[in-house]
């Protein structure tokens, strides 16, 4: 009986083709086609609220409990964000804390992974220096943060870990933060006589040092 069904389906299709009236469409559909079995409306799953990660204060971190007492005074806070430990220290106690973290036999943080900075424009202590340290003995990665104002000089850790040499040079080059006790503090990525510190928030991304360009390059007129 497929031949009979086909013209029916065709006429239905023709009827429903150009129509926008829903009622007529559903009436036509119900005439010829079999009614589909009525399903129960699925019960909506209870929405599980995703836990928004946030900074949690931590009191019992074994690493920071083993620190020397003199050094532990400068620790302002110990927090955890997504299972990563962050310790904020004051700038005056930074160098002693780093020495203790490396020399303490239980901790042995002998691998300085990274040194970088953040710029919170508008804050009185504008820069935030971030040090990532790893201990082979404990198998742990921790983060030390400290705040510094715009013209404050930060103690260099290049005498503690040799790898800090170029990392601090890069921070100086891009942010303008000066390090005391650094063997060779000069620009590393930008030309030596560049003016300005690009990664600061008040430095526009397209700002080129025109004085440098006019003294070093001969710009030709580009063909149209």
């Amino acid at each position: 009986m497929s031949d009979e069904e086909k013209p029916k389906q065709n006429s239905e299709a023709q009827k429903t083709a150009g129509k926008t009236d829903l009622k007529e469409e559903s009436a036509v559909a119900e005439e010829g086609a079999e009614k589909p079995p009525v399903k129960d409306k699925p019960v909506p799953k209870p929405k599980v609220k995703k836990k928004i990660p946030s900074y949690e204060d931590v009191d019992d971190d074994p690493v920071f409990q083993k620190l020397n007492e003199k050094v532990a005074v400068s620790v302002l806070s110990v927090q955890k964000f997504l299972d990563q430990s962050i310790c904020t220290v004051s700038l005056d106690g930074l160098y002693e804390l780093m020495v203790d973290l490396r020399d303490n036999a239980d901790l042995d943080f002998n691998y300085l992974v990274d040194v970088t900075a953040l710029d919170y424009l508008g804050d009185e202590q504008r820069f935030c220096l971030v040090y990532q340290l790893y201990s082979y003995k404990l198998g742990r990665l921790i983060r030390i943060k400290t705040r510094a104002a715009e013209d404050e000089v930060v103690p260099s850790v290049s005498s503690i870990w040799k790898t800090a040499d170029w990392l601090e040079r890069e921070v100086y080059d891009l942010f303008g933060i000066e390090f005391s006790g650094h063997p060779d503090l000069r620009r590393i990525l930008l030309p030596d006589d560049w003016h300005g510190y690009p990664l600061r928030k008040d430095y526009d991304i397209k700002l080129q040092d025109q004085a440098w360009i006019s003294s070093h390059l001969k710009i030709r007129k580009t063909p149209v």
Binding site: P198, Y203, K206
Partner: peptide, 15 residues
């Protein structure tokens, strides 16, 4: 790379 350190086209310095 339209930034502070990039030359926008080498034809600005050589043909």
């Amino acid at each position: 790379f339209d930034t502070y350190a990039t030359l926008q086209g080498v034809d600005k310095v050589i043909p």
